[in-house]
């Protein structure tokens, strides 16, 4: 791979003219420059450059272990960078304060906890980024929750217990939770994993409605399925680097840009690429730059 492959300048932009976008890239929702991320000393992301522009829907594709999830976790500040910089809406990550502008749907996280909660309560917890401390729920909070439930098509289930819903519906609740914060940038980590086709369609419809409103969407996906028409740009990760960045790929083409699944490591936990520690006090050192 030549360095030119991993730079993003203009590749996605050339294919989809977007008149509303100004020449100034300073306030792009997410810009990664030469980002490297190491987990437990092992480099997982290496020299990744990526710029996501306002209103764009970008999918991150690639096999297990290619670094897709690591990339979005670095982008959202959940993982420290070993090198490089991330800017959100023009502000470097360490100084970024407007977290309510970012909505995050974590990977395979369970919506159920040890205590029962209703759909409305879980979606309502998406407002925490916008709530002030020790204040009761405002009318704006309630309205945002109803609107978010409406977008994912679960308005009639608001009073249901979260454990009464199917897995696909729970995934939609988690998306509604991210939407309740009224974000400008929505980051979804494998929202379609293990979700049946009707629920995948409902997810695609919800994302389409957001896209119409001008939201920027970063979507990690194993398979795009019904989301395909939404995608403006595909980024294919391979072994921690960007292998392709450009116009949307179909799943078949994307599968051929890398060798067959040669890196089948289970992804998910923060320490997945590292041998597990064997003593209770032998924890991994987390160095912040």
């Amino acid at each position: 791979m030549t360095p030119a492959d991993s730079t993003t300048a203009g590749t996605g932009a050339g294919s989809q003219p977007r008149p509303e976008r100004g020449p100034d890239r300073g306030t792009d929702p997410a810009v990664l420059e030469r980002v490297s991320v190491a987990i437990g000393g092992r480099p997982i992301l290496r020299d990744v450059d990526l710029a996501v522009r306002t209103g764009e829907t970008v999918t991150l594709l690639g096999p297990n272990g290619s670094g897709k999830s690591t990339l979005v976790r670095a982008l959202t500040g959940l993982l420290p960078l070993a090198r490089g910089s991330v800017r959100l809406f023009g502000t470097p990550l360490p100084d970024f304060e407007h977290w309510h502008r970012v909505g995050f749907v974590p990977q395979r996280s369970s919506a159920t906890g040890g205590v029962p909660a209703t759909v409305r309560e879980v979606v309502g917890s998406g407002r925490v980024g916008r709530r002030r401390l020790l204040r009761p729920t405002s009318r704006a909070d309630r309205r945002a929750v109803e609107a978010a439930l409406d977008v994912v098509g679960l308005a009639d289930r608001a009073a249901y217990g979260i454990s009464q819903l199917s897995g696909g519906q729970q995934q939609r609740v988690l998306i509604a939770r991210a939407l309740a914060g009224e974000p400008d940038l929505l980051v979804l980590d494998e929202p379609t994993a293990g979700v049946d086709l009707p629920n995948q369609r409902a997810l695609a419809e919800a994302l389409a409605r957001l896209k119409e409103r001008g939201a920027t969407i970063v979507l990690v996906a194993h398979e795009i399925g019904p989301m395909a028409p939404l995608v403006d740009r595909s980024v294919v990760m391979r072994d921690g680097r960007v292998a392709y960045d450009g116009p949307p790929l179909t799943q078949e083409v994307a599968a051929h840009t890398h060798h067959a699944h040669d890196l089948e490591a289970p992804e998910g936990d923060a320490h997945d690429h590292v041998p597990h520690v064997s003593s209770p006090f032998d924890w991994e050192r987390r160095t912040r730059p």
């Binding site: 309510h100 909505g103 995050f104 996280s109 909660a117 401390l133 020790l134 988690l174 991210a178």
Partner: peptide
């Protein structure tokens, strides 16, 4: 009781709560 929205968000999904700025 005063911080229950924040405590609930952190208890049910720490990653989400962190990205929400808590």
């Amino acid at each position: 009781l005063g911080l229950s929205p924040q405590l609930f968000a952190v208890a049910s999904d720490p990653d989400f709560a962190r990205v929400a700025g808590l």
